[in-house]
Nucleic acid binder design. Sequence first.
RNA 1: CGGGUCGUGGCGCAGCUUGGUCAGCGCGCUCGCUUUGGGAGCGAGAUGUCGCGGGUUCGAAUCCCGCCGACCCGACCA
Length: 577
Amino acid sequence: MLLRMSSLLLRTLREEPADAEVPSHRLLVRAGFIRRAAPGGYTWLPLGKLVLDRVTAVVREEMHAAGGQEISFPALLPREPYETSGRWTEYGDDLFTVKDRRGADHLLAPTHEEMATLLVQDMTGSYRDFPLLLFQIQTKFRDEARPRGGLLRGREFLMKDAYSYDLTENGLIEAYERMRAAYQRIFTRLGLDHAIVSAVSGAMGGSVSEEFLAAAEVGEDTFVGCTDCDYAANTEAVSTPAPPAREVTAPTMEVHDTPETPTIASLVELANERGLGGRTDWTAADTLKNVVVTVLHPGHGPELLAIGLPGDREVDLKRLNAALAPATAVLFDDFESRPDLVKGYIGPQGITIPYLADPRVAPGTAWLTGANEPGKHATDVVAGRDFNPDGTIEAAVVRPGDPCPACGDGTLTMRRGIEIGHIFQLGRRYTDAFKVDVLGADGKPVRPTMGCYGIGLSRAVAAIAEQHHDEQGLVWPAAIAPADVHVVAAGKDGQVEAALALAATLSRAGLRVLVDDRPNVSAGVKFTDAELIGIPRCVVVGRRLAEGFAELRDRRTRERTEVPLVDMAGVIAAELG
RNA sequence: CGGGUCGUGGCGCAGCUUGGUCAGCGCGCUCGCUUUGGGAGCGAGAUGUCGCGGGUUCGAAUCCCGCCGACCCGACCA
């Protein structure tokens, strides 16, 4: 490959684009890799397309190596299959829907579990057809409420999605582990520093799922690690260790006048001032906060739900929604319509709506909480004695320093990451929905079990840019750089010709070459552009040309060495291994 | 979807408060000459329905209404 900058569709920007905030977005636009074309939609320019194709090639290679067979579904799909699976409504507003000329509903696919399952139903009939692993690389559509960060979250993006079908649980687990291993190889090859964390399944359904998160400040996901063990999880999936149930030793519940204490802080202050329950050491953690939310089930009416949690914790709506999925929740604020719910003074004893408690609200624990009357709270309200929650829920914020749910010894640390991959053991949700059965070896029907595995390819490009850049610009890992070498003609006196000749030589040696042969562009501009574009190594054809030397620069380390022109191809080939 | 900021040549911005030589600056672009190892100099040029639609007015980039879009925070979502 030999690309000449004199004719390349490229315009680097000296100034920061005003609409770009995150580093990957700024740099990819400035360096001429992408261009915004629509809300949440980007055009891949020649350099960007080269990178995207490299990423795609790595993924495709590893998918084949893992036994995958590549197919391609339509992106424009009819409504019925998604109606059958329930996702037409469950996916909600994020689903891009369109009507055809006859008024029939269609959708632009956000993922293809339904179509993959229908294909399996259509084309298999016997246990001999399994196991099966299908994958495709295709543009996906989601009507995101808020596209952001350039390629990080678009309404249209490139995704590799794969679907496994097995006849046994062990088969599914084996396929899942194989894909998990393939993902680790892929992200390592892409140069992405990543973590594998337990996750919640969201609209996909299913039980076990893990996310691959690329560590990045601008990531939208927060995940925890443990100081002592290898536990890692998305905050949404963190489980709270429940204290063991204990004997009830607390005295009888007692109601106190606590005027003007609608907040936890004001309640704790007053409780200590008055020595409520004979104590003056109340903290927020001793109180039980009861938050009312409106739960919206897809396709049903709203429902009220109260959530009880220690007063020093807020409700984390992300965690709450993850726990309630596919239903969603919003904070309830129309207390005037519900006189039975006394804002600021709600207690779980005798509450009139469903009540779920944080795991820390274990049987036998005693709390300072609302008395369901304005200006009154109660002490020694004991779980299991004075109230019985309808269940537990993981909705409280997770904080650094919280105990690890896995080992119990360590504490949790928190980082942010970009979700670049997500793998699920879906089970039979979709094969049940479409009633897929095949004949087993014993002649009896068997229902296949399913896994699905996604990688955001365009997002991965952004994640790589996020992790590989410096003050001057992008610094692509060799495996996915748009070229192997960037040849710069730095001076006058025939150096453009010499640079082109060298570029041709390197290209013939099998290297992918970008050559800056722009006439009448100063060396400074070319160097700056080369650093912005971020090809791993740059060859400067300049002042020592007459002696038969050119300068080889390493983009990352900034190391410079003089190399004889005749040896250049060999030296670079050696570096590439 | 709520709150905020914003929309003026390819990019970055000024102008709007107080309507009327305000279509302006820098970068980029074109041509010529000079320059050529770290975003060159001089000269000459081209590029705008001032986001869209409506309204007020003799007159609107500027004032009013509606819409669209961008970005940030939150919500939502992966």
